[in-house]
């Protein structure tokens, strides 16, 4: 089936190995296939950029990995291996012991992620205490160190603050520090900078990159913004309508996209456009998740689509460690012409 993306040393076992993961939401109006047959691997210290338009299934992928899908959603198939241990069959209690401890999540909106009636220190304590025996004062020492690491000045005072007393950027730093406090080996960051303004965004990006490298954390960086992944991620996985349509080492994918959707996403980044030239846009809109087109879900918007695309597209290798789910992946020549 899916070929793993080979950017890790040969002998090292991946920290996280996802294969064939599918999650659906059973709603009254029908079944939403939010995530379909998603596979990828992640090694220590590696950052995977998970990109795609909003609604493409990025968040649901993250939640499925952490076992956080709740009714009416359900993980219907696939496997999630963490250090070789299967998570999809674990009991809720065993999963709970892993969440926030070995797998951590950072959510999008720092304004709503922290509990408004608990101090920052108390929220650290909650997360530490959930996984190990620890006195409150010991927890505060750890929290203080963690706050320094994410670049928060006067950390001791911050611990007695309530969330509303901190700015948005500050709160996201706190969320990051909290989610890293138990030294997880996998972090799922679900658009953690989307709600912040641009300067703070890049500060946090750099800080995250440093922390991930220092601690050898494997990270999934979810974003709808292709422009941030270039200098930041090692690997890229592009999602469309619940599927990973293209994956591979970030530089190669960006310099030579194989899937027309990836190419379309890149053409719609304003910064990469020549001054004066027209900003391309992918025509049409995402199909309703309740009624996806047969075969390749992108074919209704794809300028290269032919009749064959109504069948399920094959997953083709388009270079070392690169795959694309497409009948007619773009060639280098096509890409040159595209520019």
């Amino acid at each position: 089936m899916t070929e793993p993306l080979n950017t890790m040393p040969e002998n090292e076992q991946p920290v996280l190995n996802i294969s064939g993961l599918s999650t659906v939401y059973n709603l009254k109006i029908g079944q939403v296939k939010s995530v379909t047959d998603v596979s990828f691997e992640l090694a220590r210290g590696e950052i995977l950029g998970l990109v795609g338009e909003s609604g493409s299934g990025k968040s649901v992928t993250g939640l499925s990995i952490a076992g956080l899908i709740t009714a009416p959603g359900r993980v219907v198939s696939g496997s999630v291996l963490l250090h070789g241990q299967e998570l999809t069959t674990l009991s809720e209690n065993a999963l709970r012991a892993i969440r926030g401890n070995d797998i951590s999540i950072i959510f999008q909106d720092p304004m709503t992620t922290l509990n408004p009636v608990l101090t920052i220190g108390q929220q650290f304590f909650e997360v530490i205490h959930a996984h190990r025996k620890c006195s409150y004062s010991q927890a505060m020492k750890e929290a203080e160190t963690a706050l320094i690491e994410v670049g928060i000045p006067a950390p001791r005072e911050r611990l007695d603050n309530y969330p509303h007393e901190l700015s948005g950027g500050m709160r996201q730093r706190v969320c990051i520090a909290i989610s890293l406090i138990n030294k997880p080996s996998v972090v799922i960051a679900d658009e953690p900078t989307t709600a912040l303004d641009v300067t703070i965004q890049s500060q946090i990006l750099h800080m995250m990159q440093r922390l991930v490298r220092e601690r050898d954390v494997a990270m999934i960086w979810v974003t709808h913004d292709l422009s941030v992944v270039a200098g930041f991620c090692d690997k890229l996985a592009v999602m469309y309508a619940g599927r990973i349509v293209e994956a591979g080492p970030v530089q190669q994918v960006l310099s030579n996209p194989a899937h027309p959707y990836t190419a379309g996403l890149m053409d719609s980044i304003p910064g990469d456009c020549l001054p004066g030239s027209r900003l391309e846009q992918i025509p049409g809109t995402q199909p309703s998740p309740l009624q996806l087109p047969s075969g390749c879900a992108f074919r209704t918007r794809c300028k290269y689509a032919r009749n064959e695309c109504a069948e399920k597209p094959p997953e083709v290798a388009v270079g070392s460690g690169r795959t694309a789910q497409c009948f007619f992946p773009l060639t280098e020549v096509q890409n040159v012409r595209r520019k």
């Binding site: 922290l114 608990l118 959930a130």
Partner: peptide, 22 residues
């Protein structure tokens, strides 16, 4: 349904603790 409850769960805090404390 608020984010901070989802975050508490995502951090592995025990459901009874999420109820009483959060």
């Amino acid at each position: 349904p608020q984010d901070f409850v989802r975050f508490a769960r995502a951090m592995g805090i025990h459901p009874s603790r999420v109820l009483t404390r959060h």
